[in-house]
């Protein structure tokens, strides 16, 4: 109890230095946590596409019924086919109108004749899609264009990778800033309290005894900073949950609160405490020479 009182006394005695240390950890964890939530959402998007292997084959205009049936027949010969859906020009128009029902300007000018008919093929095995795409891209007489999920996934994957790598770089940067900031501030506080440490040592205090309040101080910055950083980012992200989920429909970008959040909070607090403890330990080791 006495050590905690002494630590709080140290914090109160230099409130601005303490505030800087707290804010650094707080901002770091706010950014770290925001990245974790964004990354989680992007993973959900990626996962959605990855678990829905699908290819869309747009047909050339003017194909007769027999040609369409022949293509459908050929598609059915492939293994692991889950579903083959034929989207006629009329059906395509109806889908288009349904999607753009709130925007009559977009629907007025469009007729069934300008929209292509297509086949949507989904499989149980994504490798089959690759074979279909390869084979049908050669059929220039009947196939106009092929949209293959792999392209979407690869594009998403590359974007996700960029976001993840930037996130990891930023997280590392902010963890380093927090570490160096706490280390420096603890060093300054030790220098300010040099006389007190010297007196305590002369009265028989061990080195660990005089280090303890500084170690505890680092732990408090890590604990409080990481906790409030998490809470603020959590509140902000969940405040935007509805618009984000509407935007990414049918993908759930920010899912309902689950066990993930308390586990993440505990992990971040642990990391925050470890940063605070290690930084103050290095600071105390570096500056307490008496």
């Amino acid at each position: 109890m006495r050590i905690l009182r002494l630590t709080l006394h140290h914090i109160r005695r230099s409130p601005f230095q303490s505030l800087i240390a707290f804010l650094t950890v707080f901002v770091s964890f706010f950014i770290i946590n925001s990245f974790i939530f964004i990354n989680r959402g992007l993973s959900n998007v990626l996962n959605y596409f990855e678990t829905k292997p699908e290819i869309t084959i747009f047909l050339k205009d003017g194909l007769d019924q027999a040609a369409v049936e022949s293509i459908q027949g050929e598609l059915a010969t492939y293994p692991d086919i889950k579903e083959i859906r034929y989207i006629s020009k009329e059906k395509a128009l109806s889908l288009y109108k349904d999607i753009n029902k709130d925007n009559p300007l977009l629907t007025e000018m469009v007729t069934a004749s300008i929209l292509p008919a297509s086949f949507e093929v989904s499989t149980y095995n994504p490798k089959v899609l690759e074979v279909i795409a390869q084979n049908f891209s050669a059929k220039n007489d009947v196939v106009d264009e092929i949209i293959y999920q792999k392209d979407v996934i690869q594009s998403l994957l590359s974007w996700t990778l960029v976001v993840r790598r930037s996130g990891i770089a930023l997280i590392s940067l902010f963890i380093s800033i927090s570490f160096v900031m706490i280390l420096t501030l603890i060093g300054m506080k030790i220098t300010n309290r040099k006389e007190e440490i010297k007196i305590s040592r002369l009265l028989g205090a061990s080195k660990f005894y005089v280090k303890r309040p500084f170690l505890m101080e680092g732990v408090i910055y890590g604990l409080i900073g990481s906790f409030f950083g998490f809470i603020l980012s959590y509140v902000l992200i969940y405040n935007f949950r509805s618009p984000l989920n509407v935007f990414f429909q049918p993908i759930v970008f920010i899912p309902e609160i689950s066990l993930f959040e308390p586990i993440l909070l505990a992990a971040e607090i642990l990391i925050g405490v470890l940063i605070g403890l290690s930084a103050s330990w290095f600071g105390a080791r570096r500056y307490i020479k008496w």
Binding site: L203, G204, Y209
Partner: peptide
């Protein structure tokens, strides 16, 4: 050192602790 009580010429009291707290600190150390 914990068995020795010292009265320093320049007092060596911790300025931002009360007298009571200074004594309590020494008692905590021992």
């Amino acid at each position: 050192r914990r068995k020795i009580g010292v009265i320093f010429q320049d007092f060596q009291l911790i300025n931002d602790l009360t007298i009571e707290e200074n004594i309590a600190l020494n008692l905590d150390i021992v």
